[in-house]
Write a protein that binds this DNA or RNA. Structure first.
Lengths: 120, 120
DNA sequence: TAACTGTACTAATTCACATAGTACACCAAA
DNA sequence: TTTGGTGTACTATGTGAATTAGTACAGTTA
């Protein structure tokens, strides 16, 4: 699974969202696969069920998972969840590009950073 | 100057920090130039002096400005403040690159985004 | 039916952020 | 020296989002 950092200042629900997004992006979770139940994951993380439910609601709003009352929550079809993740990550990254550009980083600076961090 | 958005959820002190970083990056504020006093800026923004002081402390920690008790706060030398801004922005951008890369965006995806957002 | 699932509330708690107020040390100008 | 402006430090208080706690209801499955 993944770890939570209670002292990071990042909301627990956001950490859970990001954790599952990464598991899905890495292919560790695949389309149709069953998510842990709200209550069991809350127990596993020693966290309130409401916090997990909030995370699941956010994941569903972003198209990463879907939930069925009485049955459980499931990862969306591979194409759908993959597209949702790429779209979200692209939007977020473009925001970072704009900010960096406004602060004076040139196109070359940005590309150099990519060469360094995202090597092949 | 710049605007504050009290309803954005972004801490006011952070907004003030980012505002001055952008003014400095754009060359609107130059090395040695005097910053507004803590009290006057707080009055201008209708905000508590402590909030402005917190922002100034952060700006000083980041090397963008320096403060002299009794005299005021001043923008650091051009080379120094410029380097501080570029360093900070680079660090932040590289973090964004790593995150995007982990979520499955390829080097080409990232470069395309740069072409689109940071034209020329 | 029983045990599980998601979902929807309200109430209480926690904690970072912001405010309010005061005080002190320092600098410059009158 | 005095006066007024500056940065800085501190405590106390208010506020709002995040989290917890508890309960309840509806749906599925064995």
């Amino acid at each position: 699974m993944f770890q939570l950092d209670l002292k990071s200042g990042v909301p627990i629900s956001d950490q859970i969202v990001n954790g599952f997004i990464k598991l899905t992006a890495l292919g560790i979770l695949s389309g149709g696969e069953k998510m842990p139940s709200v209550r069991s994951l809350a127990s596993q993380f020693s966290v309130n069920p409401n916090t997990v439910q909030k995370a699941y609601t956010l994941l569903e709003q972003n198209g990463i998972i879907y939930s069925v009352k009485g049955k459980g929550s499931f990862v969306s079809d591979d194409e759908h969840s993959h597209k949702a993740i790429i779209d979200g990550a692209t939007k977020e990254f473009c925001r970072a590009v704009r900010t960096a550009h406004q602060l004076g980083l040139t196109k070359d600076d940005l590309i150099k950073c990519i060469e360094r961090e995202a090597d092949v």
